[in-house]
Design a protein around this nucleic acid. Structure first.
Lengths: 129, 129
DNA sequence: GTCATTGCAAAACGTTTGCATGAAT
DNA sequence: ATTCATGCAAACGTTTTGCAATGAC
């Protein structure tokens, strides 16, 4: 059984990530938190994001830029990374779980996650061109 | 227009990656090449793998372990990463392009890649348990 | 001769870790 | 009192880069 204690820092990190749709990195979150909480350390941010990911409260994302992004929404869904503005967008689909099952059927083993990550140029960036 | 000159090193790297299904990392490729070509440098391996990826001859993979793996097959297809043996398997699907299109439709922008990466435990690993 | 490519080593980058201190139960 | 979590800084593993030398055309 996974142990846990309440800590102010953990709740601050929760508070800063909750409700966001911009999928910040640990570093970004850290810098933002630092303004109000100058004693917060980077290691604590990493440790807690990892912890929250492990207990399934949030999810970690590999979007293709080599940096781990965090999504307060742990539900499986696709993501779109804009190579120009470097933003990450949620991509919701009606039959995501069916597609996941479809993929899992083609795997020789037990699948426990299925990440779909798209890359390209977002509408806003191709318009401002 | 992308310039290029032939170089022995580039061809050696091609030769060592071509036909493989184990999706080696740059480091792994480097160590293997080193046996026959002790002068090959790690930077050259990285530079060439990046180059071959850029021209679309091979593809780079983010499988979730934080290290970039390389696939000599540039055709879009899914990958399965076994968390136990740390191997990467190809996952081929009949309607992969259709699924890609399906996802792309839900994106506000121009999609140029769609990576599907599954994780779990491969059959072999769950059998040897 | 020009300029892409190399080898080498150092630096950069994101992330993890060791350890003494502090906080939660 | 116990032991989990923190702050700090150092270490880690992967990847990129600067630069002088080499090699392709």
């Amino acid at each position: 059984m996974l142990q846990r204690r309440n800590s102010k820092q953990r709740n601050v990190i929760r508070e800063y990530l909750c409700g966001r749709i911009d999928h910040p990195t640990a570093e970004k979150l850290y810098k933002e938190i630092r303004v109000e909480h100058p004693k917060m350390s980077l290691g604590t941010v990493y440790r807690n994001l990892m912890f929250l990911t492990d207990i399934g409260e949030i999810q970690a994302l590999d979007v293709g830029d080599g940096i781990t992004h965090f999504d307060p929404n742990p539900m499986p869904h696709a993501h779109f990374y804009c190579k120009k503005c470097k933003r990450v967008f949620d991509v919701f689909m009606d039959d995501y779980d069916k597609i996941q099952t479809l993929f899992a059927k083609n795997v020789q083993g037990t699948v426990d996650s299925c990440a779909v990550s798209l890359t390209g140029i977002c509408k806003e960036c191709s318009d401002n061109n």
